[in-house]
Design a protein around this nucleic acid. Structure first.
Lengths: 103, 103
DNA sequence: TAACTATGTCACTTTTAAGTAAGTTATTGC
DNA sequence: GCAATAACTTACTTAAAAGTGACATAGTTA
């Protein structure tokens, strides 16, 4: 509508500006995780929202989903290069929260 | 529900993890702005959402709302100290978007 | 052969977010 | 005395996000 003052921040927010996306990405910073483990690390997320979130992140190229054809299923999620480039921001958000909630 | 893996990032996201909050805060980084000006800087926000957003940010102590008792009304918004402490993160988000959308 | 496993999908409902349009205020300038 | 102004507020509606519970899969183990 009014794009007069469009700024890159809007772009970033459209990509990761949701309740769950930064949290999911954050937990993948250290290492790839399989689906169940990752989901357990995200407090309070429902099964549906978890699937939906990782699928969108995959679609946007922020993480990579690897399916192993075994039974029961094994699916692993890892950050893509693009996802890794958010590392600094994700850590800053986490750090800010740690500092701020001390007060 | 499952608070086992609560991390500071969750705290931060609960505070500013919405579509509009980071954008509103971002535009106050340089200088305080009066209501109408600030709202025009936020692309696509409705009147209602703007009011709601700044009120929540005020409630959470991230910005300060100053009402001048004149007619027609004059209201100015400025970052609080706590809000200013987000400067680095907001700029990082903006910078990331600028870099990423070049690709 | 029946239960168990991990990772979903689907249909459905509830909750929350957001948009729209009208109304309020009190002074100034015409 | 009437319109214009800036910044809301309210009631109402619509759209989007999220939750819930049931079901699918197919090999392995009891």
């Amino acid at each position: 509508m009014n794009e007069i003052n469009f700024c890159p921040l809007d772009y970033t927010m459209n990509l990761i500006g949701t309740k769950w996306k930064p949290i999911v990405l954050f937990h993948l910073l250290e290492e790839p995780l399989r689906s169940g483990i990752l989901q357990k690390k995200v407090p309070g997320i429902s099964n549906k929202m978890f699937t939906q979130t990782v699928r969108e992140l995959e679609k946007d190229g922020l993480l990579i989903r690897t399916v192993y054809p075994v039974v029961p299923p094994k699916v692993e999620y890892a950050l893509s290069t693009r996802g890794k480039s958010l590392q600094y921001i994700l850590e800053s958000l986490d750090k800010w929260g740690a500092e701020d909630c001390k007060k």
